[in-house]
Amino acid sequence: MHLIMIVAAFFIACWTRCQWRLPQGSWSQRWQTALFLFLFPPLLIFMTAIALICMGPQGKMSGLYTGWFSYVLALSSLAFFGILCIKLAWGGWQSVKSTRNCPLVNLAGKQARLLDTGALFAGQIGFWQPELVLSQGLLQTLSAEQLETVIAHEQGHYHYRDTFWFFWLGWVRSCTAWLPNTEALWQELLILRELRADAHAASQVDPLLLAESLLLVVSSPPVSSEIFCAALGSSGVERLEQRIEALLAQPEPIPEVQLQSWNGFLLAFLPLVTVIFHT
C-alpha cells in the first residue's frame, strides 16, 4: 500500500509540473502560478515520505500489508534532501564569511561591503540579514545618481528577504531537479524576483535611470550563486529584456500576499491524513 502512495505522489507531482505554460498575465498571477507549480509537487513528495516514516514498516493499511522497501525508500529520500540542504547552507555560509572579510564603506547613509574587483557587481549576500556588496569597479563606473538606483534595487531584495526565501527555493530546486519544468519554473521565479525589486526601486528613483544602470551592470558576469545571492546583474538576455520593458512601461505595483493564495498548498498535506488508517 505504501508503494502505491509513492507511485501516486510521483505521478501527481509530474502531472502538476507538466501544466506549466509560457508566462502570461500580471506579476501577481505569474508569481502565484509559478510558485504553486514549483513548490506543490516537491511538497507533496516530502509529505508522502514523512507520512511513510510516521507509519513505519510494520502493520496494515486498508487491509494491505506494508513493508520495509517503501520505508527505506522514504527514509533515504529524506536523508538525501537533508544532505543537500546542509551542503547548500555550508556553501552559503562560506560566501557570507568571505563577504565579511571585505571592508565596510558608507554610501549615502547605507553601509556596504566593498569587493576588490574591477567587475561591475552589486548584490545582497547572506540569508535573513544579508549585506549589501558593491564592487570597486561599480563605484568607479557609475555616477552618484546611477549608484542610488542600484542601492534602491538592492534594498528591494532586502525588503522582501529574497536571499533567505530563494535559498530554500534553491534547495527545493536541487532536491527535485528531475521533475519536469524545474529549470523553466526556477528561471520564471528569478525574473519575477528581479521585477519585484525593480518595482520597489522604481517607486523611489527614476525608472529610466535604473534601466540605464541595469544595462551597464548586467554586462558583468555574476560573482556568486543565485541561491544565496540576489544581484542586480544576475540576468540572462531574456530576463534583461523583460526587466527593461517593465521599467520603461512603469512597473506595476506589487500586491501584498493574500492568505487564500496559499490554500492550494494544503492539498499537499493530504498524505499525512493516511497515517490514521495505518494499523
Rank of each mutant, 00 (worst) to 15 (best):
Ile191Glu: 07
Leu247Arg: 05
Glu256Leu: 03
Asn101Ser: 10
Leu179Phe: 07
Leu169Ala: 04
Leu138Ala: 09
Arg113Tyr: 10
Val205His: 05
Gly67Trp: 12
Phe11Asn: 08
Leu84Glu: 06
Ala144Arg: 13
Leu209Val: 11
Gln129Ile: 04
Pro42His: 08
Gly118Leu: 02
Phe121Ala: 07
Pro23Asp: 00
Gln250Tyr: 11
Ala119Pro: 01
Leu210Asn: 15
Ser213Asp: 04
Ala112Met: 00
Phe265Thr: 10
Trp168Ser: 09
Trp178Asn: 05
Gly59Ala: 08
Phe46Gly: 00
Arg113Asn: 10
Cys175Met: 05
Pro23Ile: 09
Ile53Gly: 09
Ala9Leu: 12
Ser28Val: 09
Gln94Met: 13
Ala51Arg: 12
Trp68Ser: 07
Gly123Leu: 12
Val72Met: 10
Leu35Ala: 02
Gln140Leu: 14
Gly170Arg: 14
Phe166Ala: 07
Trp15Met: 00
Val218His: 09
Ala197Arg: 00
Leu185Gly: 08
Arg30Phe: 03
Glu241Ala: 15
Leu139Trp: 04
Leu169Trp: 06
Phe36Lys: 00
Ser203Asp: 15
Thr66Phe: 04
Leu216Arg: 14
Gly126Cys: 09
Arg239Met: 06
Leu185Pro: 03
Leu88Gln: 09
Ala197Val: 06
Ile86Gly: 06
Phe167Asn: 13
Phe127His: 15
Leu52Ala: 11
Leu272Trp: 00
Val72Glu: 10
Ala112Arg: 04
Ala202Leu: 06
Pro251Thr: 06
Thr176Tyr: 14
Leu142Trp: 01
Arg161Met: 14
Leu216Phe: 08
Leu3Ile: 13
Trp68Ile: 15
Ile45Pro: 05
Leu215Ile: 11
Thr16Asn: 06
Ala108Leu: 07
Pro130Phe: 14
Ser220Arg: 12
Leu247Met: 13
Thr66Leu: 15
Ala246Tyr: 08
His2Phe: 01
Arg113His: 06
Gln29Cys: 01
Phe127Met: 15
Gln146Asn: 06
Pro207Asn: 01
Gly25Phe: 03
Gly59Arg: 03
Thr48Pro: 10
Thr48Ile: 12
Thr117His: 02
Ala119Leu: 11
Tyr158Trp: 14
Ala74Leu: 11
Pro221Ala: 03
Thr274Pro: 05
Tyr71Asp: 04
Leu216Met: 11
Ile244Thr: 12
Pro57Gly: 10
Gly170Ala: 03
His278Glu: 03
Leu88Gly: 04
Leu259Asn: 00
Leu104Glu: 11
Trp31Arg: 08
Leu132Val: 13
Asn181Gln: 02
Asn101Ile: 01
Cys54Lys: 04
Ala201Phe: 00
Trp128Lys: 13
Leu114Ile: 13
Leu192Phe: 07
Leu267Ala: 15
Glu212Thr: 14
Thr163His: 04
Leu190Gln: 12
Gln250Met: 03
Leu107Ser: 00
Gly92Asn: 10
Leu147Ala: 14
Tyr160Cys: 04
Ser203Ile: 07
Glu256His: 07
Leu169Gln: 02
Leu132Phe: 08
Val217Phe: 09
Cys14Trp: 12
Leu115Thr: 10
